[in-house]
Structure formats: structure tokens, C-alpha cells
């Protein structure tokens, strides 16, 4: 386990922002932190970053409590992106890299590689305010990952990206995972969760309402629906009857129609999200 959050609570002047939340992110894993607006995701992320401190509970790094020095090994991209508008792209990346403890020379080398990768090399000496929003987002991403942090925290990484650049970004995030980084990733974008997250925690009203592997969760929420295709070109959904197994259903359907294909429909993460947030609101 790279990072473990254990039973963390946080209150802001009478309002509970994080209520006994636990989760753990292993190395080489992309972990989704989901939840509606105001659920407490940003508060939790700030506690992990040691920007604020938990009222109770602890954050463990490799099984030992985290210290201020460990924060350097986190790459954090906040939801509200921010860079110095008047500073040149290159200076900005170098400054942030040095603040995270990189030597200037190493930082410069790494920066050039990243700028090349995002086709931003010619913008190195331009001020940030001259860049388009998408380019500025890429600069922010570079500033976040340049020091090769073993733990990355992205708050809504895809917001503001067009589909082409979102794909480039997704590819880079997957590559960072393959290189062994643990990635905690907070988002509203459920299709990206299905595509890249292995595990998720869903928070609502400061509490964990759902936690586990994405594939397990989708199984758990499935409504036992089959999508069936027949030889005469029909396609329809069939819901399993009480106690009926999929095998029985297919055998029965195959007698009635000539089946050419069938597949079990799993709920999208979007449906899972909406359903579990709604049901937890009623509790």
C-alpha cells in the first residue's frame, strides 16, 4: 500500500467536511475519488497534502505516518488550476520543480522532455497569459508530474481539455501508472472512471458510501439484464426472472428466437453514481 487514509475526520466551524473516511491506494494503481459537489473530496485531498490537518485519524505512507517532508513526493493538481499569469512557462515549471526539491539542472532536463511530449517547446519563453486554456492546462500537468512523484493527486484532471488533448492526457496518466506511481484521482467524469480507474471510493455528505474495485461494483449494481440479438435482426433487452440463471434464460430464449449474440449489460458508473448518491441522500 502506498498511501493509506485511516478514519480521518475534519470539521470546519460546526460543519463536518470529512467523516471517518478510510481508503488505501496501492502503487501502480489509479484510484478514483468520487462524489457530488461539496461531498468533501477537496477537503480530504487537502488533508492528504497536509495543507490542512485532520481533527482525528491519520494518513500513512508505506505504513508510517506522513511527515511534512513526504509532501514533496506528492504531485498535486488542484481542481481550480492556478499558475502565475505573468511568469514565463519555463520559469514557472522550474520554480515549482525546485520548490519540490529538484535540482535546477535536472528540472531543466525533465522539463524539456515534457514540453516536447506536449508540443509546447516553442512556448517555453512565452508568458502564461499568452497561452490558450488547453495549453495552460498542459503546463499545469507538467508542473505536477515533473519531479516524478510516487503519489499523484489529480482533482478533475480532464476538465477544460478537448477530446484530443484529453486522450493525450489519459495516455500520460496511464504511463505514469505503468511506471509505478500511485494515482488518486477525483472526478465527476464517470466515463473516464470506467476507462482508467481500478478502484473507487464514493463520498457523499462527508461519508464513504461505496468503495471497491470498479468491476466488482458494477457487478454488484447489475440489474440482470441481457442484450439479445436474433437472426432476423431484432435486438432487445431481457431482464432475468426471479431465480432464473443466465444459462437457463439463454437456453429458453434460443428456443423462441434464433440467437446470434447476447451480452450481459452492466450498469455504467454514471448509473452507479447517481443511484448510490440518491439512496444515501434518503438515509
Amino acid at each position: 500500500m502506498y498511501i493509506e487514509v485511516k478514519d480521518v475526520c475534519k470539521q470546519y466551524s460546526g460543519h463536518v467536511a470529512v467523516d471517518h473516511v478510510s481508503l488505501s491506494v496501492p502503487d501502480g494503481c489509479i484510484y478514483g475519488l468520487l462524489g457530488p459537489n461539496g461531498a468533501g473530496k477537496t477537503s480530504l485531498i487537502r488533508i492528504i497534502n497536509r495543507i490542512t490537518h485532520a481533527d482525528s485519524g491519520e494518513v500513512l505512507l508505506h505504513g508510517r505516518p506522513m511527515t511534512d517532508d513526504d509532501v514533496r513526493s506528492i504531485g498535486y493538481m488542484p481542481e481550480e488550476r492556478g499558475l502565475y499569469k505573468k511568469m514565463k512557462v519555463g520559469d514557472q515549471i522550474l520554480y515549482l520543480a525546485q520548490l519540490r526539491g529538484m535540482k535546477r539542472k535536472d528540472a531543466e532536463q525533465a522539463m524539456n522532455v515534457w514540453l516536447e511530449r506536449f508540443e509546447l517547446t516553442e512556448w517555453k519563453n512565452k508568458k502564461l497569459e499568452q497561452l490558450s486554456k488547453g495549453m495552460a492546462q498542459k503546463v499545469q500537468f507538467i508542473a505536477t508530474v515533473i519531479h516524478r512523484p510516487p503519489l499523484l493527486i489529480f482533482d478533475e484532471p480532464f476538465s477544460g481539455f478537448d477530446p484530443v488533448n484529453a486522450d493525450i492526457l489519459k495516455k500520460e496518466i496511464l504511463r505514469l501508472r505503468d511506471e509505478g506511481a500511485a494515482i488518486l484521482f477525483s472526478t465527476h467524469n464517470m466515463s473516464s472512471v470506467e476507462e482508467i480507474c481500478e478502484n473507487i471510493t464514493l463520498i457523499n455528505h462527508a461519508k464513504v458510501v461505496l468503495q471497491g474495485r470498479v468491476s466488482d461494483i458494477r457487478q454488484q449494481f447489475k440489474k440482470n439484464i441481457l442484450e439479445v440479438n436474433t437472426a432476423d435482426g431484432q435486438a432487445f433487452n431481457y431482464t432475468l426472472q426471479n431465480g432464473e440463471t443466465m444459462h437457463d434464460a439463454i437456453a429458453r430464449l434460443n428456443k423462441e428466437y434464433q440467437l446470434t449474440g447476447f451480452r450481459e449489460i452492466l450498469p455504467s458508473m454514471h448509473e452507479v453514481f447517481v443511484e448510490s448518491v440518491k439512496s444515501s441522500n434518503y438515509e
Partner: peptide, 14 residues
């Protein structure tokens, strides 16, 4: 720094 939101990135490093 506050309106730019860069402050959140900076205080996560120092």
C-alpha cells in the same frame, strides 16, 4: 496568488 489559485499548489510544497 489567491485569485490565481496557484497558492494551493505552492502551499502543498512549502
Amino acid at each position: 496568488e489567491k485569485t490565481n489559485r496557484i497558492v494551493e499548489v505552492i502551499v502543498s510544497t512549502c
